[in-house]
Design a protein around this nucleic acid. Structure first.
Lengths: 135, 135
DNA sequence: CCGGATCCCACGTGATACTG
DNA sequence: CAGTATCACGTGGGATCCGG
């Protein structure tokens, strides 16, 4: 059974993030790690080498890049090709599944851009209201 | 300046997750914590009390529910109403901004449902390939 | 050049107990 | 009922060194 979280109105519906069958849980596992999302964006329709990817996703450590790429390869989001040359060359490309992830991710980015100002405003006024006694 | 990550083809574009102005970073901050997404789904178009919410989002601790709700309130995603009655009653409702988040989140859920099988298949075959020497 | 292996710290999170 | 406060813990993730 597949649990739908956003499909309908709320009501008495239960959400179990610990249910293995719940796809929402799977989204979070992939999206929640920060780097997967950025790598999908950095790769786009391109093919890129490890070091190029590391340069594009600024701030990522080698460990996290490797680790995240492995996870994505395991999930079939990314294709890893090793060219057995003198200095080894490894290239990464989004699979069809990976490419299809870009659309929903873009929807999220659009939302973020659209609401960024409003969110910042709320934060500012909230902080003022909530911290008058902050010595 | 606003950095667009998913808008166009990759190329030499830089992604800086540490740039305060990058909206992608803001999405991740909100989405990446697991609970915000689930609370948006659990609330939907409803109004719910604290304890009701805690029941709906199975597995969340009181601390995390409070903490996440505070963050969402701060960002203007949720409206918190305190009714000063005998046993205090506090109600939560998604704001317009919060409600509008449901669409992109649903897109993500749809993607997840659509690709769940494929992902599981890849994982299975990957695990077989990668761990033959697992004593 | 690509990444495996290790060490280690920080912080997110849960459990528990207390208050208005 | 709806939190706040405290403590204890696991692990995500950075730094570094090593290997193919």
């Amino acid at each position: 059974m597949v649990t739908t979280v956003f499909g309908a109105e709320a009501g008495e519906r239960r959400i179990d993030p610990y249910s293995a069958g719940c796809p929402t849980r799977r989204i979070l596992d992939r999206i929640g790690d920060r780097w997967t999302v950025l790598i999908v964006g950095a790769l786009g329709a391109d093919t890129a080498r490890f070091s190029e990817l590391k340069r594009r996703v600024e701030g990522i450590s080698q460990k996290m890049l490797t680790q995240t790429l492995r996870g994505m390869e395991r999930d079939g989001l990314v294709l890893r090709t090793v060219h057995p040359e003198v200095p080894v060359r490894v290239e990464y490309t989004l699979t069809d599944a990976g490419l299809s992830l870009r659309a929903p991710l873009k929807a999220l980015e659009d939302w973020s851009i659209e609401h960024l100002g409003s969110v910042l405003d709320h934060q500012a006024s909230y902080d003022v209201r909530a911290a008058p006694e902050a010595r």
